[in-house]
Design a protein around this nucleic acid. Sequence first.
DNA 1: ACAATAGGTAGGAGATTTCCTACCAGTCAA
DNA 2: TTGACTGGTAGGAAATCTCCTACCTATTGT
Lengths: 106, 106
Amino acid sequence: MSEGDVFAALANPTRRELLRLLLERGEQPVQRLADHFDMRRPSLSEHLKVLRDAGLVVEQPVGRQRLYSLRPEPLREVADWLGPYERFWRARLADLRDVLDRLPDE
Amino acid sequence: MSEGDVFAALANPTRRELLRLLLERGEQPVQRLADHFDMRRPSLSEHLKVLRDAGLVVEQPVGRQRLYSLRPEPLREVADWLGPYERFWRARLADLRDVLDRLPDE
DNA sequence: ACAATAGGTAGGAGATTTCCTACCAGTCAA
DNA sequence: TTGACTGGTAGGAAATCTCCTACCTATTGT
């Protein structure tokens, strides 16, 4: 299902904004999404295609509209990738806290 | 500090692999990192520059070598961005579980 | 049937990415 | 000091990205 590259899909700010709109407002037709960008509709269509290929959105035709909605599952790949780094930076923060604790009072 | 775009830095598989190597093996000189890629060293240098600009690695000159090490803090931006979507997909999983619970036994 | 609307595809221009081969500067060892 | 080693920069080729205008299909309302 998730054919395209999720990381690459997230690299573009317009695409991240599209995901944010879908998260906040739920299912939206293309025109409604396009209203919030200073960009022609065909460009938006291409961004939506990238998101579709990455499995991050799904479309559902309703009359002459296509309702796009969020499909967050592929983001789990990103979260999983992030996990070990998160553990690493928490360990660093803990170390920092230890150092600060050992400082003489001021 | 984090001048460059973290999301864009993570879009490239070679750069993600570099971060993984630094996470697993700690501080490494460039040549040691380059040994693990089928790529010329100057290209690696450029990838390291992108990671440096994103604040994801720091270099420390030691003799004629430069030791690179991981600086995971900018990844927090990614983790923070991911948060609301993670909540969303957990809610979806919970919904799915509810539906399955209501199914007649088989 | 015809016009208007929604949204995709085609094709292209310009910017950016990603790789390469030189080449350069700094450090170390003989 | 000379030669080898580490790693960066310069410049360029090819691929990819991101935007555009023009155009097409499908659906809806009159």
